[in-house]
């Protein structure tokens, strides 16, 4: 295996019997130590199955998986020692308080009553749960449950942290707070394996991502590389006048790909974001005829659509995602400006 890999997965396959559902059909990837790795896919793509295998809770039907060099099927107990895991649904005991959850986890990991109490207090503080620490989990809001769940995963200062859709159902503010905590863990040297169906979340956090589709890895790489390869930067603009298409083409040398008939045009930028300023410079010659202009970088959503043929949210029925719709930069052109 490669030196320094925190997670190494080779041809991992999982077939659920007796239904014969093939959840994974040969998944391979590596995650470096200290890396945040995003594992993206729609519901049912195989994300949770992969997490359950890597965390020793599920046995693969084929292939192999190592965490910090240890085979997850051969030595599950050894693997568990280095893991922190927050599974898809916050796994809490409704009748236990937040503090009791953390103390129990800490003591089962071998801490003394005193050390466990300290650890619990620290984690409650970090996760903003100090005030709710002595309330039972049944009285927690969705966001608080999530935070407690992730706090439980950190009880033994894990070397490898698995977070299965940690921000699903969270409001934008809680989501950002959790991102901050995940980054802080990484700064302390923890490897983070993050599954999500929020592509902007992966874009924001992950150094590398794998896109899973129907049990296989459809693409893998840094978000930037994937966007350059599978997506395109576009300039969307509305230009006054009947001959807008010809004038834009004349000014830029680029064929507008979409015309909605009301002067709205889309230009695909070849050469990525770097080519945008030059293109805008050429468009500037059109002057006040430009009523509206927007530069839109490629998003992982574009990559996802290009690879799987449909949007990630299709049928997911998930929470409001508007705060995450990719990197948009609107460039207002003052109507009175001319050259």
């Amino acid at each position: 295996m490669t030196d320094g890999a925190a997670i190494e997965v080779r041809d991992l396959a999982k077939r659920y019997e007796p239904a014969g559902v093939e959840a994974l059909r040969g998944v391979s990837f590596e995650v470096g130590q200290g890396e945040i790795f995003g594992f993206l896919g729609r519901n049912g793509a195989g994300k949770s199955t992969t997490v359950r295998i890597l965390t020793t809770l599920l046995r693969p039907s084929g292939g192999s998986a190592h965490v910090l060099g240890t085979d997850v099927t051969a030595e599950p107990a050894k693997v568990r020692h280095v893991l922190g895991v927050a599974l898809q649904d916050a796994a809490l005991d409704e009748l236990m308080t937040g503090r009791e959850h953390l103390v129990l986890a800490s003591r089962l990991s071998g801490a003394s009553a005193k050390a466990a109490g300290r650890k619990a207090a620290d984690l409650l503080e970090v996760f903003g749960l100090t005030g709710a620490g002595d309330r039972i989990a049944a009285r927690y809001s969705g966001g608080m449950r999530r935070r407690l769940d992730v706090a439980m995963a950190l009880v033994r200062d894990p070397q490898v942290l698995f977070l299965d859709e940690p921000t699903t159902g969270l409001d934008p503010q809680s989501r950002r707070a959790l991102w901050e905590l995940i980054r802080r863990q990484q700064e302390q040297g923890t490897t983070v394996f993050l599954t999500t169906q929020y592509l902007a979340e992966a874009d924001e956090l992950a150094e590398r991502v794998a896109i899973v589709h129907a049990g296989t890895v459809a693409a893998m790489g840094t978000p930037t590389a994937l966007k350059e390869r599978y997506g395109a930067t576009t300039v969307r603009l509305r230009v006054a006048g009947a001959d807008a298409v010809d004038r834009v083409k004349g000014a830029t040398g680029v064929d507008p790909v979409t015309t909605a008939g009301d002067g709205r045009l889309v230009l695909n930028v070849t050469g990525g974001d770097a080519a945008v300023p030059a293109l805008l410079g050429r468009l500037a010659t059109l002057g006040p005829a430009i009523e509206r202009i927007e530069v839109r970088s490629a998003t992982l959503e574009d990559v996802f659509v290009a690879l799987t043929g449909s949007e990630i949210e299709a049928g997911a029925g998930s929470a409001d995602n508007t705060s995450l719709t990719g990197v948009r930069r609107g460039i207002g052109v003052p109507s009175g400006s001319n050259r």
Binding site: L57, A77, R80, V85, L87, A91, A105, L108
Partner: peptide, 16 residues
């Protein structure tokens, strides 16, 4: 209920 809630998985991951 522990099995269904996933709490048992959590305890297993703590090597209980």
């Amino acid at each position: 209920i522990d099995i269904q809630s996933g709490f048992l998985d959590r305890l297993r991951l703590l090597n209980a």
